[in-house]
């Protein structure tokens, strides 16, 4: 792993799909190409997604590139 996992990196929201009344799926793409390339995880590992100053949430591993998809209750 080439990056320090305690240091966050930026990702861009590519699209948002409303799934149900209170849940949406967000597709994220990691901005830096080298990080995106080396981004890997094992089954059961978590991704930590945060919006600085707003909060953070852990997510179970999801299918990797080209985009990561998170389903978030939006209520």
């Amino acid at each position: 792993m080439s990056y320090d996992p305690s240091v966050p990196f930026e990702a861009t929201v590519r699209w948002i799909k409303k799934e149900t009344r209170d849940t949406a799926t967000y597709a994220l793409q990691i901005n830096a190409r080298d990080i995106a390339k080396g981004y890997a995880f094992r089954p059961g590992q978590f991704n930590m997604l945060g919006v600085p100053a707003s909060g953070k949430l852990p997510f179970p591993s999801v299918p990797p590139l080209p985009t990561m998809k998170f389903s978030i209750p939006s209520g």
Binding site: P8, G50, P52, A53, S54, G55, K56
Partner: peptide, 24 residues
Amino acid sequence: TAYDHVPLSCLSRKTAERCGSRRR
């Protein structure tokens, strides 16, 4: 554990700017 420390002085209503630090 880790959390975002956001002082009140870092919350700007006008510009929607936020600043702070990640504390472990």
